[in-house]
Simulated assay, not measured.
Amino acid sequence: MRYSNLMFGLVLAATATMSHATSTISGTVDYSGATVGTSCDGQSESQAPVFVLKAGATIKNVVIKAGAAADGIHCLGNCKLENVTWADVCEDAATMKGGSGTVMYVKGGAAYSAADKVFQHNGLGSTIQIYGGFYGETIGKLYRSCGNCTTNTSSGARKVIIDSVKLNGVSAAVVGINSNYGDTATITNLSIKGWTKGSPKVCVAYTGNNTGAEPTSLGEKWGTTNCVVTTSNITAY
Rank of each mutant, 00 (worst) to 15 (best):
G140N: 10
G109F: 03
T151V: 15
L142F: 03
R158E: 14
I73H: 01
N83P: 12
N78F: 02
M104V: 07
D116S: 12
G140Y: 09
K65I: 08
K80L: 07
I128D: 03
R144V: 15
E91A: 08
V84I: 14
V63N: 04
G140V: 10
G101W: 08
A70M: 08
I59P: 12
I130V: 15
G132W: 03
K65A: 15
T95F: 00
I162M: 07
Q129G: 01
G125N: 11
A68E: 00
M96I: 07
D92A: 06
I139E: 09
L124T: 00
W86M: 11
G156E: 07
K159H: 11
I64H: 04
K159I: 12
V89D: 04
S126K: 08
K107M: 01
Q129W: 04
K65D: 09
E91K: 09
M104G: 02
L124M: 13
V103A: 00
S100H: 11
T95P: 04
G99V: 10
T102C: 07
I139R: 05
E137G: 13
D71P: 14
T58W: 01
Y143L: 10
T150D: 12
G109H: 04
V63E: 02
A66S: 15
A68M: 11
D163S: 12
S155K: 15
T150A: 14
G136R: 07
A110G: 09
R144N: 14
K80M: 08
L81C: 04
Y131Q: 09
S145F: 06
G108A: 01
K159Q: 14
G108D: 01
A66Y: 08
C90A: 06
F134E: 05
E137H: 13
D88L: 00
T95N: 09
V160M: 07
I128A: 06
G108E: 00
K80V: 10
T127D: 00
N148P: 15
